[in-house]
Every structure is written in structure tokens, then in C-alpha cells.
Design a protein around this nucleic acid. Structure first.
Lengths: 295, 295
DNA sequence: CGCCGGTGATACCGTCAAGGAATCACATCC
DNA sequence: GGATGTGATTCCTTGACGGTATCACCGGCG
């Protein structure tokens, strides 16, 4: 049995007329009759009652007609779904991200992406910078939002998606908090809370280098595993810390954010992905650049 | 696209190996490769990733595999359902019946039939004797339980399914109720409640003829439209009536049933059906004779 | 009553594509 | 580096699909 047989049978069953059905199918009546009889022979039963003048459906024919419709519809659906998947309009997109991207960048990008591709399921995984690069390279995730720079070995490609100035986070009441901005050299003697080098080597080194270029070695009082924890310690009066200006968006009382002057290049977040044989969902995501501010 | 393509694709997708898949399909590898490529060409996308050494499914291929399975299963189901219908194992059986059959005959027959054919929906219609014969002839119902005799015009066939003796129904306290049985001639002077001739001519005439053959014309006091109403009137003391002995099974107090002696042939209920081109559900029903008392 | 139009069935045939046989190109492994 | 195993390529055969012509049959109509 082939779909052809079902298509032919449906045509005959709906026209109840071999010639007309054949015409609709752009073929001639004998060929159609033959196929219908072949179908009946395979099923071992009669689908149509021919009485020399009229054609009618048997009971078995009636139910087979319904079923045939369903099969044909399902077959068309299979085709359509496969095409949709191949176009990246249906399926799943796996995105890795570092925590700072969660504040603003990622939600905004996802909102725009899902408006365009509502049938793509998005899977999110929080990762460290290193994991992000590795998993994008190994295609465990389709792409990852990570802090730049990142070493682009192999087939990895990257694009900058946001850059932010560095702010200094001070406990309320700290003398420096009375200024509108803080020069980095004023922090030479301050207790600094830094992100642990083992967790975020890029970011840790970035802040340390920044200080060294300003002419001093930072006085690291505590090491923590995320900027949020650092800000928490600052609020408790255990020191000061650096943070991207976007950190201000997160609710955390007891601290003051002040722009840092005399500082090195800004903090950049980028998107990395394996650029070889990109699946359609990834290509679509990259093509629409949903992280960009609206036009 | 034909089911063949789906079968081939499923085979390859599950073996992830063209030669093995081809072997399973009892064909050779180049032919299979060709068909798969034809399928991909029609869909306009790639279902399988061939990398010289291994075969793997693309995203589109994965979803198409699921869909293909569903289509093939549905196609098999269509076949199976049509066969089941043609065998009368699935479908609908329409039965007409006269009220007296409802007491015992019909429920018993249906219980046995449904145990054998649980997937056949049974549609029941209460009819008069005449309607039963007509609708069986015109195939409005597949068959009908009616009171015999019935005129078997055209293609109508019939079989006796039950025969019952006639009882006389007397109000409690009636002098004749003291006897074990009643001779029909003893009813010559009694007020008789008879079923209306316009409603049940067969039955009406049957009872009247019975009396005339016993040598008297019945004294018809009331005419009603069913035996149940007649028994009700008897309970109210408005006369006596005839009933099949099975009527005793229905709950109705205030009356006594006594066998009738010296009476004509017994009341018979039969099944009638159009014997030309019987649908399978009907053939099955007739073949199992579910109205017969158990072996 | 015989002719005509219309129905599906039958007979026969050409064509095209599905499938088979042999081989190739290329990777991997020992 | 040869052996092995993979899918791709090439070429050919065959069978089935579909087309042409015709038949058998029925109903309607003059």
C-alpha cells in the first residue's frame, strides 16, 4: 500500500465517479480503476460498490475513507514539520550564559527572538566563562553569552553584544561615596572584594590588571564566586568592589554605585558559537541579532 | 512522497547504516541511497548527515522520523480498521424490535452478541410489526424482531426466535382465577380488552380468530395500544385480556395469569432481514443466533 | 424497439523509475 | 600500507504504472 492508493481512493470516494475522479487526478479512468482494485485486493475487501451505474462506499470503505484522510493529512504534516525544523522555525535552541547576562541582556534578546520564532523551545544553561566557550565549541550549547575576551580556538566565532563601564561599589556612608565619580587610584588603600580567580579568571585578571595599570596592586581582602556575593559583602561593610554598571539594576540596598574614572577598557559581553555547520535555529538567532537595542 | 520513502527512511534512521538497512528491507544499498536522496530532494532538506564513515540524523531528520513512524502506524491502523469493519467486528448494527421483545428476548440476545463483538455499536429502535418488516426490507434497520407471521415480500427472510403460549390475564378475585387453567370458551361472555387493530393488526386479528375458532365472537370492551396497557385495565377490573406468558415477567400487581387451553397456535416472535447482500455485522449476528437459549 | 450516451471493466502496450550488479572513492584500523 | 568497510556512482534490467482503444452493460428517449 502506498500513499498513491490512498490519494486515488479518496478522489474516487469523494467524486463517487471513476471518470471524474480520474480527471481530477489528471489521469485516465482505466489506470485509476486498476489501482483501486489493487488496493482492494491488498486489503482483501471491497471498498466501493459498483452497480454498473453508480458507485457507492461500503461500510469498510466509509471508515477507510476517514482513515485515509487522516493518513494523508499526517503525511503532509510530517513534511511541513520537517521543513519547519530545517528552517529553524520549530525545534530547540540551547543557550549558555554567564550570570551577568541574566540581568538584562538575555531576557531582552529572548523576548525579541521568541516573538519572531514562537515555536522554538529555548533551553538556557547558566555557565562560567570557560564552560561557555567549551560547550559552544563542542556544540553542547548552540551559543553562549560570555565575557570577552575569550580564546577563540578551532571553529569558534564571537561577536560583541554589549559593553559596559565599570562602577565601584561602596558601602553607604563611605567617604568616597560623597563624590560623583571615583578615580581608580583612590582605591589603592581600600579593602577590595574580588571574584575568585578559579571561578572567573578573565574577570579577576581584568580587574587586577586595571589596578596595576593605575599604578598599584589591589589589596584583596576577600575572594567570592560572583559579583552578587561581592556586592553583598560590600553592603556589610567588608570592603569595596568593582561591578559592571548594569549591576545597579539588581535590587541590593546599603550600597552606592559610582562611575570609575581613569579606568581601562570597558567590560564586554559577547556571544560565541561554533561557526561550522550551524543549525538553522542558530543561524536564525544570529541573523536577527536580538540582543541589539531596537531600531 | 510515498509510504515506501517513509519505510526506507525509518529503516535507515534506525540502523544508521545504509547497507544494514538495505539488508533489512531485502534490497541493495544503492537503490536505498537513491530513494533516500529522492525523499530529501522532495522535502528540499537534508534528513541524514553522511560523513563518509557514519550516518546521523539532522534535527529535521529526527522530527521527520517521529512523524514517519506515526504516519506508518496510522496507515497500518487504517488497513486494520477497514478489515475489521469488513468482517463485522467493528461498526454499527441497527436492530428494530416490537415492545414484547424488550422483556427478555432482546436483552439476552444483545448480551451474548456484545460479548462476542464488543466493538460493534448496537442501535435499537422500537417499532411496530409493520414498521419492522418495512424497515428491514428497506435496510433502514439491519434486522427486526417482529411478531410472526409477517408477509415476506421481495428479499425478506425470517426465522422464528421464540414462541410462547397465550395466557389469559384476570383481575385478582375473578371467579376464573380460581382454576389452574382456563378454557377459551369460558371467555365468551367476558369483557375483553384487546390491542387496537390499527396499531397491531396481526396481534388483534390473531386473538379474534382464536376466539372465532373456539365458536364465539369476542366481546371487545376496550381497545388499547399495547399489551401493557391492557393488563393495566385488567388490574383495574375493566375486563380480561390475552397476553404472552412472558408478560408475567413484567411487574404488575393485581392480576392473575392462567394458561389458556383449547387455544390456537402459539404466539411467535421472529427475526426478519433483507437477505440480499447482507453486511458483515448482520451476517455475524445471524450466524451466532444469540437469541437461542445457551447450549 | 432500437439508438445513443454514459458507466466501469478489459486488453494491450509503451515508458519510466525502482531495484540490482559492479565498481569507485575515501576513510579508518591494524 | 594493505585490508576492511563505508556511502556514492554508473549502468542496466524489469516490472509496474499509466495511456489508448475497446467492450459490456444500462438507462433514457424518440
Amino acid at each position: 500500500m502506498e500513499l498513491r492508493h490512498l490519494r486515488y481512493f479518496v478522489a474516487v470516494a469523494e467524486a463517487l465517479h471513476f471518470r471524474k475522479a480520474a480527471e481530477n487526478l489528471h489521469m485516465v479512468q482505466p489506470a485509476l480503476s486498476k489501482q483501486i482494485r489493487a488496493l482492494e485486493a491488498e486489503l482483501g475487501l471491497q471498498l466501493l460498490e459498483r452497480d454498473r451505474r453508480h458507485v457507492s462506499l461500503t461500510e469498510a470503505g466509509k471508515t477507510f475513507l476517514e482513515e485515509a484522510h487522516a493518513v494523508l493529512a499526517r503525511a503532509d504534516g510530517a513534511k511541513a514539520r520537517a521543513v519547519a525544523v530545517s528552517r529553524g522555525e520549530v525545534g530547540a535552541l540551547t543557550i549558555g550564559f554567564i550570570q551577568p547576562a541574566l540581568a538584562d541582556l538575555l531576557p531582552r534578546a529572548l523576548r525579541r527572538y521568541r516573538r519572531e520564532y514562537p515555536d522554538v523551545r529555548v533551553r538556557l544553561t547558566e555557565l562560567t566563562n570557560r564552560q561557555g566557550a567549551d560547550q559552544a565549541a563542542s556544540r553542547t550549547v548552540h551559543c553562549a553569552f560570555v565575557r570577552l575576551p575569550v580564546d577563540l580556538g578551532d571553529d569558534l566565532a564571537a561577536t560583541v553584544v554589549s559593553q559596559q563601564d565599570v562602577a565601584v561599589v561602596l558601602p553607604e556612608g563611605h567617604p568616597l561615596a560623597e563624590r560623583d565619580s571615583v578615580d581608580i587610584r583612590d582605591l589603592a588603600e581600600e579593602d577590595l572584594v574580588l571574584v575568585d580567580r578559579r571561578v572567573e579568571p578573565q574577570l579577576h585578571d581584568y580587574y587586577v590588571t586595571m589596578c596595576q595599570e593605575a599604578g598599584f596592586s589591589p589589596h584583596v581582602a576577600h575572594e567570592v564566586n560572583s559579583t552578587w556575593v561581592a556586592i553583598g559583602l560590600v553592603a556589610s561593610g567588608l570592603g569595596v568592589c568593582f561591578a559592571p554598571t548594569s549591576a545597579k539594576l539588581a535590587p541590593q540596598g546599603g550600597v552606592a554605585y559610582r562611575p570609575l574614572t581613569g579606568a581601562a577598557p570597558r567590560l564586554r559581553i559577547g556571544l560565541v558559537w561554533n561557526d561550522t555547520a550551524k543549525p538553522a535555529v542558530l543561524s536564525n538567532f544570529l541573523a536577527m541579532r536580538p540582543w541589539e537595542s531596537r531600531a
